[in-house]
Amino acid sequence: MSAPHSDRIDAIAVGDVIVRVRDWAPLVHCITNTVAQNFTANVLTALGAVPSMTIHADEVAALVESADAVLVNLGTLDPERRAGIEVAVAAARDHGKPWVLDPVKVNRVATRRAFALRLLKSQPAIVRGNTAEMAALFPHLGSDGTVVAVTGARDSLSDGHRTVLVDNGHPLLARMIATGCALSALIATCRAVEPDSLLAATAATVAWGVAAERAAEGEPGPGTFAVRLIDEIGAIDPETIERHASLSRG
């Protein structure tokens, strides 16, 4: 069965996904980096989602079953999280829950890369990482309809047939810990309400980039920027997205 495709991927469609997140308040279960947990939870809550963060293998399956989407982030790959990730991915597969993989630092640690490659066999809806991380997983990406989101100065997102380029964002994102982790959680949040994985990933990426541009007005330092970023993702709306979105088809 082929994945659903939206008729359009543009600023209006992006704004509609954000509205649905606010209307539906999806539950997103996040197994993520320890340094990212608090920031990620605040970002998702600001947008209107309901985050859960439990990593213990005894509880993860039940939480995934009740969730609308799942994030698996490899940033802190300690034994407890590794066990929790395996349970979460199996539960997501068993219950038909979309899940997103953030393969943090797989380009630097061989065992982490091997674990990520094994997880890819369970078909995440979306994989998001930076250029080096995604290159380490090539050519195992995109052959099964999984959306590949490579983020950086220009973000490139593709499902193997359609490609979207996003030019929103700000250099301050690279001077803060956990902004990429939070984006991956936002992608999972948008996928919870939008079955087209490419549109979902695009919506989160554009909204995050626009929020960053607005948060950076007045040239704040990284600490002030972090607070403003949460404020701006909480205030993001379709009108703001339509005015500031910079996306094109590749």
Rank of each mutant, 00 (worst) to 15 (best):
P195K: 09
A91C: 15
G160Y: 07
A178G: 11
A204P: 06
L71A: 11
N168K: 02
V14R: 07
P139K: 07
S197C: 08
A149T: 11
I126F: 12
P238V: 08
T34I: 09
T179A: 12
R112T: 04
E239I: 12
N38A: 15
H5W: 03
G15Y: 00
T146P: 08
D231T: 12
A185F: 01
A125R: 15
T202S: 09
G129C: 13
D23H: 08
R128L: 09
E219I: 05
A215D: 00
P124D: 13
H140M: 14
A200K: 07
I230R: 02
A174W: 02
A188Y: 01
E133F: 07
A212E: 01
L71R: 12
R118D: 15
G152W: 01
V147D: 12
L199F: 03
V166C: 05
E65C: 13
P139V: 13
F138N: 07
P98E: 07
H56E: 07
E86A: 04
G96T: 13
R162T: 14
A174D: 15
T240D: 14
A174N: 13
G96R: 11
V43E: 04
P103L: 07
A61E: 03
A46W: 00
V43Q: 05
R191Y: 02
A132W: 08
L71W: 00
D23W: 04
R20D: 14
R8M: 04
N42E: 05
R214H: 11
N38H: 14
